Amino acid sequence: MKLRRAAFALAALVLFPLAPAAAREPAPSIEAGLAERLSAIGTVPVGRVGIATIDLTTGRETRFRAAETFPMASTVKVAVAVMYLAEVDAERRSLDKIIALNEALRSGSDGIGQDMPHPGVSLSAANLIHLMLTLSDNTATDVLINDLGGVAKVDAWLRANAVDGVRIDRDIARLVLDNLGLPMLPGKTAAQTLWASDPLPATARAVAVEAFDRDPRDTASPAGMAQFLARIDRGDFLKPSSQKFLIETMVKCKTGPDRIKGLLPDGTIVAHKTGTLAGLSDDVGIVTLPNGRKFVIAVFTLGIADGPVRARIIAEAARTAFDYYATR
């Protein structure tokens, strides 16, 4: 069958165990009690888990395999949003700007690809950011990346703003294409190739996923992503109005309700962004405690075939951090 809508619905695979990344973990965290609990959650028989938390009141961090790199998947969309909003703050762009969809960028994910199937789509930058962060809309993301001048410009913005441990190398359609192990078709964009290609057989697909997981491109360390979120909260990148727009939009995220939010008390405010590809699930965000204090958590999982298992690891890490910080 053609990939079409199924191009982004990735089946569970039997994945190969992954060797640890060659990165030196920093000295033990000040929050030793939390680190021990997160280590127990993140130690898995197959694959890897990386966890980083930051208490936004004290700045103290907790890390488990947090210096290692993991595929970011759709968590990269936070960086795209922040750069776009920084451009708005610099008056080089506007949230009211109407951007017409180039059909060559249309992917089959939720949002534009599924709900706006006909040509002639034009949306404001604000609506594109909303779709990107709340539904993880891949088409909206690539439209925004294209408007910003391409992935090299986004990565250059990260470097210019000293965002360490986070890198972007491909647009989302090409990222998914590579995760699926599919070659580009002559004369077509990555998005068009996704629509036109047949999936690989299961064995070849597993090999492609293993190669993708070892690719250094489009990766982040949990520590780097956590620091990025902490700096967003501090206001390092954005004016207050843009920061407010970003956080309020991330609070409305509809994907991954069983991840960071999965075991937290009902009504807990979580501004987060998920990422999902074959054998991996991520979730990164800012959690507000009942007393108003906040903490950052970034959890990346890799090489674990069962999606619910990955989600449970993330949920348990978030609840453990929540309970720990709530008593501080």
Score class of each variant (00 low, 15 high):
A156M: 12
A156I: 12
A156K: 15
W157C: 00
L158C: 06
A160W: 14
A160K: 15
A162L: 13
A162R: 15
A162E: 13
A162C: 11
V163K: 13
V163Q: 07
D164H: 15
D164A: 14
G165L: 12
G165H: 09
G165T: 11
V166Y: 13
V166R: 14
V166G: 11
I168P: 09
I168S: 10
I168E: 09
I168T: 15
D171F: 06
D171C: 11
D171T: 10
I172P: 08
R174F: 05
L175H: 09
V176C: 05
L177V: 00
N179H: 14
L180S: 05
P183C: 02
P183T: 03
P183D: 00
P183V: 01
P183Y: 02
M184Y: 02
M184Q: 04
M184H: 03
P186A: 01
G187Y: 04
G187I: 02
G187V: 06
K188G: 02
A190T: 01
A191I: 00
Q192Y: 02
Q192H: 09
Q192V: 03
T193I: 00
T193H: 01
T193A: 02
L194E: 11
A196W: 04
S197D: 03
S197M: 01
S197A: 10
P199N: 02
L200P: 00
L200D: 01
P201L: 00
P201R: 05
A202N: 12
T203R: 13
T203A: 07
T203S: 03
T203H: 08
A204P: 08
A204H: 08
A206E: 11
A206P: 09
A208L: 12
A208D: 10
A208Q: 09
V209H: 11
V209G: 05
A211H: 08
A211Q: 14
A211M: 10
